[in-house]
Design a protein around this nucleic acid. Structure first.
Lengths: 114, 114
DNA sequence: CTGTATCCTTGGCGATACTG
DNA sequence: CAGTATCGCCAAGGATACAG
């Protein structure tokens, strides 16, 4: 007899958490922003330099979204002229393993494919 | 010819090795496709059922791209009617840790944020 | 069953100029 | 320095019908 295959894959609940996390790190520049912030806290224009080519609009969009999600902390420093420090929150640090896994695989792919 | 403004959307930033991997798992349905294939090999319409809501066009697009990248293997079975088996290549399996890390973080986020 | 072929909408992103 | 405000494009993705 032909072993009829299972109609369902074992654990479908995966759909949700995947989207949950990817909706955070999914933006075009977002992973790199988190990457740089995971190394150290950065100011707006420092990030703008880190992410060469990003427009201030998009950088603002991303940072605001990340801040709203509780992933990034924004702190205005009482300096003159005023500067703003961005850093990862504890929640933001939870993302680091995923980012690192992605980086890891990125390296492997690079080795394997050229 | 008309000189077009060069505001076309470029590929993600090149600063860190993130892009390499994200360009593979970055598509809208791609992570889930890889997830389902990591459990077992699947046929086209099985994947279409797994990924409820995906259009055949997009599923084809993704599978072709993944196949071209060496991540997914496509095998036509000599059955009647013909069926096609998709599975992960060894290279594709390299992606699993990253996917799993993302899932992991997805769970954490869900716990922490409700 | 396994895809193609079209058409259409959307929103993400780029570029640039301007403000406190 | 740290953003906002506008404008515009275009490619990803949805919907649907058709084909081998």
């Amino acid at each position: 007899m032909i072993a009829r295959r299972k109609n369902k894959v074992e654990s479908p609940p995966v759909n949700c958490p995947l989207s949950e996390c990817l909706s955070i790190i999914g933006g075009a520049w977002t992973p790199n922003i988190i990457w740089y912030l995971s190394a150290q806290s950065r100011r707006f224009s420092e990030l703008k330099d880190d992410l060469q080519g990003i427009s201030p609009k998009v950088l603002t969009q991303r940072l605001k979204k990340l801040e709203a999600e509780g992933v990034v902390n924004r702190e205005v420093m009482p300096t003159s002229p005023p500067t703003v420090e961005y850093s990862l929150t504890p929640l933001g640090n939870e993302l680091k393993p995923a980012i690192e896994a992605i980086v890891e695989v990125g390296h492997k792919l690079k080795r394997l494919k050229g």
